[in-house]
Design a protein around this nucleic acid. Structure first.
Lengths: 335, 335
DNA sequence: CCTCACAATTGAAGCGTTTCACAGAAGGTA
DNA sequence: TACCTTCTGTGAAACGCTTCAATTGTGAGG
């Protein structure tokens, strides 16, 4: 920077002003300085900058699992908001590993980012709470039970409710819920929501087939399980994830006599990209990941500007029904 | 840090030594210092650290598209290697946007990361080359034509060749290649590889149906196109992506008379997670994203240690055939 | 032509580390 | 005991920037 100042024939402080408060410096001088910067190929040292300024303009986000499109959507949404405020977003991937998650959080704290967004593992109570530092932190897709942090969550219960309502609204009465393990709060809540919908509809029943996970292989197992029951046992199914639904539908599809949605209407969860593209496009509940990311980023930015005493809030985002062929049948058309 | 020193009754420099060269300081003192650090909740300021030390221990990776699982795999592989060397990996997502890509690169340069891994957009010649700074940079999934940078690429030609060879080896003779636009180098190269395989096999023909993209919708269009031809026109298909293959198969599957793989054997490309899980598991060419990431990280670390004069190399990673039911039929079993 | 108010510019004092030349202590040797 | 070595621990000088009080223009009004 000293070089640039020399080359442009101005003081060091002026160069700094050109970079940070361009309105403070006369057009002509600004031009000269810019020219020198370009000519010398100067790149401002951000480490020095944030050391001196005491604040950085980048925000870090720690994601539980990059292979999960929900988290990618969250990151995308967060980035949009962060950029609007002239800041940058850096991502760290925990890869479903609690140790990495802690490592990543402290990595961001050490580098003195302006704030941290944390999309934690579902099972990660413990560690989350031990993060008590001065770096502003906002949770995404996980509620801080103690109210220590602001956060954004999807209303999973409502999602489960809507899914079941949709089936009931289509006249289905013998429902089954596919999903597990119940240790996952998200699954438990979706099930609770579905139960609530059933409870308020006389004559409708709901059985739960617990799976050991949420991917397609588990879905196929669940599909087999359904096949062991007498035909017609169920006429509507809520799956705790789209992959589960797709897997189960594959199995049912292979065995004639169980047509989707005629015999069994199927609805999934997550609005996984793949779900809309599978052979029978799967109706689903969309969690609006981008919106969650945007909201979380906004919360974080408020906290950055408002200081540590900023009121902690939890924003709840309602998921929405996205009906497709797996429930509507031929009435539904691809657009 | 001064506080810690005071609290532990040692000099400032000693605290620094405890953190950086623990072997230089007596066990007892180290303990005292560690205790003080814990008690005071001290978090080392990395900005100051890298300013003073002149080097950082984090590496940045700029990814063209987080929704593409290949890039996520690359990041995962890179992270593994980076961690082995005691460094950290931060991710920035360009989201298929050239402007963001440049922004992200300069973001990393400004923050003085030890080095940058760049997985650029396929169309991004221009910008890539203008990155001429002192920060070590290694390309992934893209070759630096000028030899300015080291890089890791998949051998796309070989991949296309293997795909076609596989079909030919199964006795298929009337092949079709689905993919486009040819502007994408990867697609063009895969096609070239397939052509090479056909050229060396007398009696085998290859037609090219150009698509406008590589996702499932494009695949369905291609499937329609195939249906317009007289039955039996093709008996083997190479798709430039798994999604393309899955889409096309969906369409053919709905129209009786075109059974996969009996009538038409299908092979995709990318080893997309979904490809192995779709109704008919799709044979594919795997690019080994993690391996690419690991190799690139290693190259970068060499360059960081070796200085700017380090010999630039391009590592080529050969993709592999992963045969599944869409070519082998019932001979293939899910494991 | 002088003042005054305001705009533009200056430069030195930090910011929180690492590094490194030195000082002190401890242990070995003659 | 005197003299060397080897370990430990010390503290001040950078690192490259932002900030801000102080200084130097500048133009309008009288």
């Amino acid at each position: 920077m000293a070089d640039v100042a020399l080359h442009a024939g101005v003081a060091l402080g002026t160069v700094s002003n050109v970079l940070n408060k361009p309105e403070k410096v006369k057009e002509l001088t600004r031009r000269k300085v810019m020219a020198s910067i370009a000519e010398l190929g100067f790149v401002r040292n951000d480490a020095a900058r944030s050391l001196a300024a005491g604040t950085s303009n980048t925000i870090g986000i720690v994601l539980a699992d990059l292979s999960n499109s929900l988290f990618v959507d969250i990151a995308r949404g967060a980035e949009a908001t962060v950029r609007q405020h002239g800041m940058n977003l850096l991502i760290a991937n925990s890869d479903v590993d609690l140790t990495k998650q802690s490592l990543n959080i402290s990595l961001f704290e050490q580098s003195r980012v302006a704030g941290v967004l944390l999309a934690p593992l579902d099972t990660a109570f413990a560690r989350t709470n031990s993060v008590l530092s001065t770096t502003p932190l906002v949770l995404v897709n996980y509620a801080s039970e103690s109210g220590t942090y602001s956060g954004v969550v999807a209303d999973e219960v409502h999602g489960g409710y809507e899914a079941a309502r949709h089936l009931i609204g289509l006249g289905r009465t013998r429902l089954v819920f596919l999903g597990g393990p119940l240790m996952l709060m998200a699954v438990a809540q979706r099930l609770a929501g579905a139960r609530a919908a059933v409870a308020e509809s006389p004559g409708v029943t709901l059985e739960h087939i617990e799976t050991r996970g949420l991917n397609m292989a588990h879905g196929r197992q669940a599909g087999q399980e359904i096949l062991t029951r007498p035909a017609g046992t169920f006429d509507g199914a809520v799956a705790a994830s789209d992959l589960l639904a797709v897997g189960a539908i594959q199995v049912l599809d292979e065995n004639a006599g169980y047509e989707v949605p005629t015999d069994l209407a199927f609805i999934g969860y997550d609005d996984n990209h793949f779900a809309s593209e599978s052979a029978i496009p799967v109706s689903t509940i969309s969690q609006h990941g981008e919106e969650m990311g945007r909201a979380a980023a906004q919360l974080l930015i408020n906290e950055i500007h408002g200081g540590p005493l900023t009121l902690k809030r939890t924003v709840v985002i309602k998921p929405d029904l996205v009906p497709r062929r797996s429930t509507l049948g031929d009435d539904w058309r691809r657009d």
